[in-house]
Design a protein around this nucleic acid. Structure first.
Length: 634
DNA sequence: CGCCCCTTAAACAGGT
DNA sequence: GACCTGTTTAAGGGGC
């Protein structure tokens, strides 16, 4: 009911797209342009330069693709220049939807197959180059990516031609090597070609499958198009037909390109009708758009990774980096990764360890402050600091994308987008209280927190305020404390943990619990369904379904719907105070009746997380598991 | 089907 | 009396 009126309240403009808009400044022909500049600076073109150029082209193509993804989200009208050099690689990527290393590929593919792939990849490169310097107007299927881009200087053209020749020679050399079975292991031309190919493949696989990862990652890029009924234009299609140059970015090949839709529409009118009917502004569309944003985010991360890889390769080859590349975050599939920087070096088992440096910090592509907002808030909460279980906590974070990190990362989003946060009132209230310096808030302060943090709660105040009051009174975890200046509300952590759902056991329920653990338990059906259907694949995907132990599985319930559990857990890593009790955590004023006797046992384990203690794990996993609630306390 | 959780609505009381 | 705060009850939906 509230969703319907959401479209009426558009109060923001898509002004924050820093991560993407920075990419948008990279034009389609950027790679070629860089190559051209190289050609300007260097009279002689070395093979190393060519490799560099190839890599740059690949990255530029990826950037362009990201740009398209992002621009599809941002502005529906920005898709006119949507030809893409990534077009053809799509087919390559779909040919082999596996992420394999060049070595693995050599093992898998026969030499002819490998040769064909290489030829195809090389042809792509050549096609790109030729496309740029033989004028795009000669190619009916390609649009001019950037006006004036084809107006290269003669020197640049000469460079391009030289590049083509070198590439041909290079390709021939590679194929000869392949025929002879001499596949060098060091990053040579063949390997780098494979690397480029792999990059394409990886990117496009991500495009293809990342939408399925929906509920798992709460996206962070923040677009205001949520507020408009039809402004959510997600362009999943890498192809763009010239006959549809003026068409809708979500429409192509006679079918709807909305993620997961593929409904057949004969013409634009039918498509528009379909779009209005099936993809109107509702929870499901919102969730899907959120997923798409996550796709973009992941691609950006991946792009950063590949850029770093390129830098490393170039460094290895004694090449001069063309530009300082932002080093990236390790591909931490847990969206709470930003909150887990402290122990990011130690990857939880089951998570894919990034091949590249894990210690390099990332420049957030989105709202920088949002990533640290909750963290910083809780670092101030000096005394109430308890550590968390190292492995289990991370597993918990991994599976139950903590709402804290979700809020932390998407605070700007929720602040501006009129989207209902997928958390329960109790979770939000608890988060608000725990976020406060004193860990206590008056009712009015809770109200203010809601309105301050969520655009959604700036309307229908009577409804949600009533709900807030109702929750405060209903749940025993919220304790009213008389204060000098009135009454404040605090959180009784023990009680809060008590109300958590029973731990999951079987695999069928696992997924659902995990989803609910993501904080979507309170969503309405459509939203849940949208997220669930997108999450299933991810949750079943190998890297995330390799639970390290029964304990890790049982941890899954810990994050249920809490907003802040992970925030304080993670941020309390540094300060180890095993003697602090949950009561102290919840509130000093509150008098508790039944302290948990086992908490002292679990506490040392929880200290492992941030400070890499080597305390032995308690042998009794069951007891530990029962202690989890207290373990979460600070 | 029953239970539980969550949301929403509403009535009511007490205080300012 | 209006408003805020807090409590309580009820209904409905969804998951298990």
């Amino acid at each position: 009911m509230m969703v319907e009126s959401a479209s009426e309240t558009i109060r923001t403009t898509p002004s924050n797209q820093n991560g993407v808009s920075s990419l948008s400044s990279q034009s389609d022909g950027g790679g070629g342009r860089e190559g051209g500049s190289n050609g300007d600076t260097n009279g002689e073109i070395s093979p190393v330069d060519l490799l560099h150029l190839q890599q740059q082209q690949a990255l530029q193509a990826a950037r362009q693709f990201l740009l398209q993804q992002a621009s599809g989200l941002n502005s529906p009208g920005s898709n006119e220049v949507k030809q893409s050099p990534v077009q053809v690689p799509v087919s390559m990527a779909m040919m082999s939807p596996q992420m394999i290393t060049p070595q693995q590929m050599q093992q898998i593919l026969s030499p002819p197959q490998l040769q064909a792939l290489l030829q195809q990849q090389q042809a792509l490169m050549l096609q790109q180059v030729q496309h740029t310097h033989t004028h795009t107007r000669t190619h009916p299927l390609l649009l001019d990516p950037v006006p004036g881009w084809h107006q290269l200087s003669s020197k640049q053209l000469a460079f391009q031609q030289q590049l083509i020749q070198m590439q041909q020679l290079q390709q021939q050399h590679i194929l000869n090597l392949q025929r002879q079975g001499l596949v060098p292991l060091q990053p040579t031309a063949a390997m780098q070609s494979l690397q480029v190919w792999r990059f394409y493949t990886l990117l496009l696989i991500l495009i293809k499958y990342l939408p399925l990862f929906a509920g798992y990652f709460m996206c962070t890029l923040y677009y205001i198009t949520f507020n408009t009924r039809f402004a959510v234009s997600v362009c999943l299609s890498v192809h763009s037909h010239e006959e549809h140059a003026s068409s809708h970015p979500l429409y192509g090949h006679g079918e709807c390109k909305w993620p997961g839709c593929e409904a057949l529409c004969e013409d634009m009118g039918q498509f528009i009708k379909h779009l209005n009917n099936e993809h109107a502004l509702d929870d499901r569309s919102t969730a899907q758009c959120r997923v798409q944003m996550q796709v973009v985010q992941q691609l950006e991360i991946q792009l950063a990774k590949e850029s770093e890889r390129l830098q490393a390769m170039m460094t290895h080859l004694h090449m001069r980096p063309s530009e300082p590349k932002p080093f990236n975050q390790p591909l931490n599939l847990a969206s709470s990764g930003s909150l887990l920087k402290r122990d990011s070096e130690a990857y939880p088992e089951g998570l894919p360890h990034p091949p590249t440096s894990a210690a390099t910090p990332i420049t957030p592509l989105r709202q920088g402050p949002s990533v640290i907002s909750s963290s910083s808030l809780h670092t101030h909460s000096h005394s109430h600091t308890h550590a968390v279980g190292p492995i289990r906590r991370r597993n918990s974070d991994k599976y139950c994308t903590p709402i804290a990190s979700e809020l932390a990362q998407n605070c700007e989003f929720y602040k501006n987008a009129d989207v209902r946060p997928p958390f329960t009132y109790a979770s939000l209230i608890r988060h608000a209280i725990l976020e406060s310096p004193e860990r206590q808030l008056t009712l009015n302060e809770i109200y203010n927190w809601f309105t301050r943090k969520f655009a959604y709660f700036r309307r229908n105040t009577a409804t949600w305020k009533n709900a807030v009051r109702h929750n405060l009174s209903l749940h025993k975890c919220f304790v009213r404390v008389e204060n000098v200046k009135g009454a404040v509300w605090t959180v009784d952590e023990v009680e809060y943990q008590k109300r958590r759902p029973p731990k999951m056991t079987g695999s069928p329920t696992l997924v659902k619990n995990m989803i609910s653990g993501l904080g979507f338990g309170s969503l309405n059906a459509s939203y849940q369904a949208a997220l669930a259907e997108s999450s299933l694949s991810l949750l079943n995907s190998p890297p995330l379904v390799t639970p390290t132990s029964a304990a890790s599985l049982n941890m899954l319930h810990v994050g249920h719907d809490d907003v802040s559990s992970t925030v304080e857990q993670v941020n309390s890593n540094g300060s180890c105070s095993p003697t602090l009790s949950p009561q102290q955590y919840s509130h000093p004023v509150h008098v508790k009746e039944e302290p948990t006797e086992l908490e002292e046992d679990s506490r040392p384990v929880s200290l492992l997380a941030g400070v890499t203690h080597s305390l032995p794990l308690p042998s009794d996993e069951r007891d530990l598991e029962e202690d989890l609630p207290t373990e979460e306390l600070e």
